[in-house]
Structure formats: structure tokens, C-alpha cells
Design a protein around this nucleic acid. Structure first.
Lengths: 339, 339
DNA sequence: CTGTTAGCGCCTTCAT
DNA sequence: ATGAAGGCGCTAACAG
């Protein structure tokens, strides 16, 4: 690293004052185009790079965004959220400072403290699956955007997936393939996705005049083994469904296994659609699993852009709470119902 | 955020100078225990928190560690690496600034530039799977530790999994179960893991006096579908193996599918061990997949701790290149060979 | 043991 | 259109 060149070396080399250099490089002030250009090329030639600690200290803008997550390690798609945020931040000349809490609020508070000590300009408060949150007290007064999380506060921007819309999309796909007897493999956690996806399931049935049949709904924890058990139960029904809409890909994998055990072939005897588009599973299953993608990357981008707009005090900087659409990703797990 | 309290308010409230406050809080200087305690409690009462931009500017220690990764989004266990690093950093009163390159060296250079502008104290240069790297020029002179990556430079610390050891562990487990005819489902990428795991496979055979049989080795891309195809080929052999050691869990999933298609039951007819311990797969497969865990979390921790030691200029701060052991995680995919 | 005095590198009035 | 000067909050000499 050696001794980095500072604004004063540039000033000396360009034969101007440090003020002029500062203005030239940051686009501010009233500097003639000629001077500005000259200073810029001198700076570039000298390989000048600003010291963000110093500029942050003076200007109260660190260009650092804090990213607070709850369980970055256990959620395979956490990387996409982070990536979306990171790329959007880079485009704004910002950088991400990441802190993970492991769902421990003491650790979370410590992490937030650390971020504030480093003078982050704002914070993305991210959950790794859609949930309702109460914002930590330490965050009051700090510009914050909620990611994959919602709260009852209307003064905060937030972005979550459109759970009900995702379920509708999944169901419409099955209905369009001709299915009328569609089971729902649901989960049991008390999270918004639980409510939203079930609501979408029912709404889709209603929209097509199909009566809701309680016996076609089985639930379990949202993992493979419970999914397998729950699926086995519906598939054992005398009048079993011809298609299954699954809460997520892990449960869908369980449904595949249950189908195998029951001697059913997918999609000939049973069609399956789920939510997550978790590629390691969806692509690997045989046949490929048709699934609704959750917009992880996009939520990451949106959160940063929203935060940037609010920090800039832009005209449209009123907080927004949005639900993002979730696209269908076609693979091979859906076919017409067996006759 | 309002106006944060600074060192001078604390000094005034405690009736001492700012120097005394600084020394009291940072543990330096010669301050009487009484004063130190008093200052500390005053600071706490005032809810003082240091401004790290200012202290970093002055002391040349930002307490920020840069984390440079290549493809955080596509690798499901990236979160564990990050988590290990983050937790270790927090324990050192450091915080992580994360930058991802998507394997694009221009983006990577920009990211590293940003980190340097923010005066990171050091950098963890991480890859998401074990590979040999050439360090970007921008990093010369910056304290750096390689994570899941190795280079030919002996002046840099690095940590990678012990690939050969992992393979040996896997093979010993199969051998201990009584298998003698063991196939290897390998991959084709030009990465250290390819070489190391194959070497471990051969070494284990040799150690038990079992001749290497080329026909038992099939390879493919390290994903499920190619794994399925490769496995189908060995399983079609007249004298098929009684066990399969797989390059990774995704290929192992392919092997499960191939076994099913061939009417073979695991582990009755075929035992399987692989490497990754990627829980979303290993736990979900039926039966559970016995797999060797890669020490992602541990590598993250180690890298930060090594970097901290080097930054502190500790006695044992000579660079180290280490290979981490990979533990066996037992599930249900291994049994005795069929008679 | 404690206090005084200079900056760290930059941005921002304010004057020219 | 450009420059001079002060200070962001803190720590590191150096004095006492």
C-alpha cells in the first residue's frame, strides 16, 4: 500500500489548491471545465484514491450501508439477496457492511451498534424468509429498509414476495393443465408465507368454481421428510388428487419420494408445482421440478435503491411497502391429469 | 440518530481531559484504576459510542476487514464461510465489508479498490470452492489471507480443505463396512478437489492392498444429472461395485437416482458416501446420505484469526498454509456389502 | 498519572 | 472561478 497519495499531492501536481481538487473530483463547486478535466487527469495519473474515512468524517456520509441478516448460513438463497444488494450498492458507489445475528437479539444489537459506530448511512434489515418483525430500538432514527420482512410501521419501506400471487400463479398453471383436484402440501410455521400461500390456493380454487376440500390439504414442517409424510397421507386417499401444490421445494422433494413409494410416476400420475425455485433441488429432481421463483436478488436490489432514494431525500422518497411478483419457472413436473 | 455524544462530553462529565477518556476506554496509557472505572461508567451512562471513522483516520486502524468472494450467490454454503468469518471478526471487535465479483476480475478490482478506499485493515480473499488463484495486483502490500484458495506464494496464509484426507476418510468408512469393490464417481473440472479426492481414493485402495480398477471410475460434471449418467454406467457393469464414493452430494443424488432406475436399494444393494455434507440434500435423500463435511465455517473463522494475528504482528505471525480436516457425518447410506 | 497540543485527510464555509 | 482556513472526532506524542 505504501504511502497513498492524497488530495494535496494532486493539488501540488496540478498547480491548484486542495479546494479546487476537492470540487473538481466531487463535481461540486464552480470550477471551469478545463480545470476540472486537468485536475481529474492529474489525479488519475497519480493514482489518487480518496480516503473514505476522512471524507466520511467530514461530510457525514460514509457511503457504507449496513446489512443486518438473521441466518445467513442456513438459508441457501441468502447469497442472492446479498448479491442483489451488493451490486446495487456498488452502482451507487456504496459498500456493504454485513452483520448476522443467528436470530439472537443480543448479538443483533451488538452488530447494529458496530454498524452505527462505523457511521453507516443506512441499514438494510433483512430476514432470510418472509416474516413480520419488530424493529430493534437501536435502529430508531437510522434510515432503514426492511427486506423480506414487514412491520406495522408505515414510515418504513419494505419489500416482501407476493405470497398470495405466487400461489395463484402456481395454481393457475395446474388449472390450465386441466387439473381440478389439486392438493395443497402446506407448512405449519406461523409466518406470512403460510397464510399467503394458503390464501392463494383457496382463491385460485374459488376463481374456478372448485369447492375447497379440506381433505386435500395436509401440512407439516417445511422440510423434506415431513413433506414426504404429509404427501403420503393425501396420496393414500381413495380419491387422491391429480396434482399437488407444495409450500416449498423441500416439501416438494418429499412429495416426489412419497409418489415413488406409492408407485406413482411424475408427471404421468401426479403433477407437482412448488415455490422457491431452489435450483440445487429443482434442477436435480427427476423430472425437473416446476417451481415459482422468489425474487431474492431483486429484493436485494430494490432495498438498496429505496434506501438510496430516501437518503438522497428525493421527491419520491415517501416510504413504500411493496410485494414483489414471483415468476413461474417451468420444468417437467406438470402434465395433464391422468384420465 | 440525533447528535451522538463524543469523547469531549464524556471528558466534561467525568471532569477529566479527553486524553484521559481516550486512554481509559481503550485500555492504553497509565491511568489509575479508579479514574478508568469512573470514566467508563460515565461514558456508559452517557451512552457514549466511539466514532470509528475518526479513530480509524487517526490511528490507521479501521477495524474493518474486507471480504472478497467470487460467487456468493451460486454456492449454497457460502453463508457458512461468511458466518464463520463474521463471528470471528465480531469477537475481535472487527466488522466485515463484503464485496463479490461474480468471477469478473474487473468487478473484483473495483471492489478491492472500494475496500482500500475505506481503509480496510486486511482482506480475506475467498473462493467458494477450493481453487488455485493468482492474487490481484491491487492486493499487493495489503495483509491478505486466502480462504478456500491456494497460491504459489509462501508469504501468504491460506486455508483449504484436506481433499485427500477427506477422500481417505470416506473410503476408510466404506472399507470398514466390508466393501472391497468400490467405485468412484468423479468430476471433470480442473480444480484441486478433483486431483485430491481421486488421489485419496487410490491411496485408500492401495493401503488395503486392493488393486486400482479403472473400470470402476466414471466421471462427469459435478451435478446431479451427470452424476446420474455416470453412476448408471458403473452400475450396468456385470461385476458392479458394492459401494460408490462420490465427488460431492449433488453427484451422489444422481447416484441415488441411478440406483433407483437400476432397481437397486440403498444401502442394501449399494452403499454410498460422498463429500459436502450439504444438508439440504444429504438430510433430504432417502435414506440419509453419509457425507464428509467441508469445514466452511471453520475456514471462515481461521482466516479471520490468522489475519488478526498477522495484523497484530504476533510472534507466530509467520504465514501458514494449512489444510483443514474434514469430518465424516454419518447417516444411513452405508451398510455391509451384499453377499 | 493526567493534560496540552497537533494533526489524520478531507470538505465546507467564506472571502477573494 | 479559485483559494485560505477551520474543524469533523479521535489518538499519539510530549509535557507536566
Amino acid at each position: 500500500m505504501s504511502k497513498r497519495v492524497g488530495i494535496r499531492e494532486v493539488a501540488a501536481a496540478a498547480g491548484v489548491s486542495v479546494t479546487t481538487v476537492s470540487h473538481s473530483l466531487s463535481g461540486g463547486g464552480q470550477i471551469s471545465d478545463a480545470t476540472r478535466e486537468r485536475v481529474r487527469s492529474v489525479a488519475e495519473g497519480l493514482n489518487y484514491a480518496p480516503n473514505r474515512l476522512a471524507s466520511g468524517l467530514r461530510s457525514k456520509r460514509s457511503q457504507i450501508i449496513g446489512f443486518v441478516s438473521d441466518e445467513i448460513s442456513t438459508t441457501p438463497y441468502a447469497g442472492n439477496v446479498l448479491l442483489g444488494a451488493q451490486e446495487a450498492a456498488a452502482a451507487n458507489d456504496q459498500v456493504l457492511m454485513v452483520v448476522n445475528s443467528n436470530r439472537n437479539s443480543r448479538i443483533e444489537d451488538r452488530g447494529i451498534d458496530a454498524l452505527l459506530q462505523h457511521s453507516v448511512d443506512g441499514i438494510i434489515y433483512a430476514r432470510m424468509y418472509h416474516q413480520a418483525v419488530k424493529l430493534p430500538a437501536a435502529l430508531s432514527g437510522v434510515p432503514t429498509v426492511l427486506l423480506d420482512a414487514s412491520s406495522d410501521r408505515t414510515d418504513l419501506s419494505s419489500v416482501v414476495p407476493d405470497e398470495e400471487g405466487a400461489a395463484l400463479t402456481a395454481m393457475e398453471h395446474l388449472l390450465a393443465a386441466g387439473h381440478r383436484r389439486i392438493g395443497y402440501l402446506g407448512n405449519i410455521d406461523e409466518i406470512p408465507a403460510t397464510r399467503g400461500r394458503l390464501a392463494g390456493y383457496r382463491a385460485a380454487l374459488a376463481a374456478h368454481g372448485i369447492p375447497f376440500d379440506e381433505s386435500l390439504v395436509t401440512v407439516g414442517e417445511s422440510m423434506t421428510a415431513p413433506g414426504r409424510d404429509a404427501a403420503s397421507r393425501v396420496l393414500a386417499l381413495a380419491d387422491r388428487p391429480t396434482a399437488l401444490f407444495c409450500f416449498n421445494d423441500r416439501m416438494a422433494m418429499g412429495a416426489y419420494q412419497a409418489a415413488h413409494l406409492a408407485g406413482l410416476e411424475i408427471p404421468r400420475d401426479l403433477s407437482i408445482v412448488s415455490i422457491d425455485n431452489f435450483e440445487v433441488l429443482a434442477d436435480a429432481l427427476l423430472p425437473g421440478l416446476t417451481s415459482i421463483a422468489l425474487p431474492h436478488y431483486e429484493m436485494g436490489r430494490w432495498a438498496i435503491e429505496r434506501l438510496a432514494a430516501e437518503l438522497a431525500g428525493e421527491a419520491d422518497s415517501a416510504p413504500q411497502q411493496i410485494q414483489m411478483p414471483c415468476p413461474l419457472v417451468l420444468r417437467q413436473s406438470v402434465g395433464p391429469p391422468p384420465r
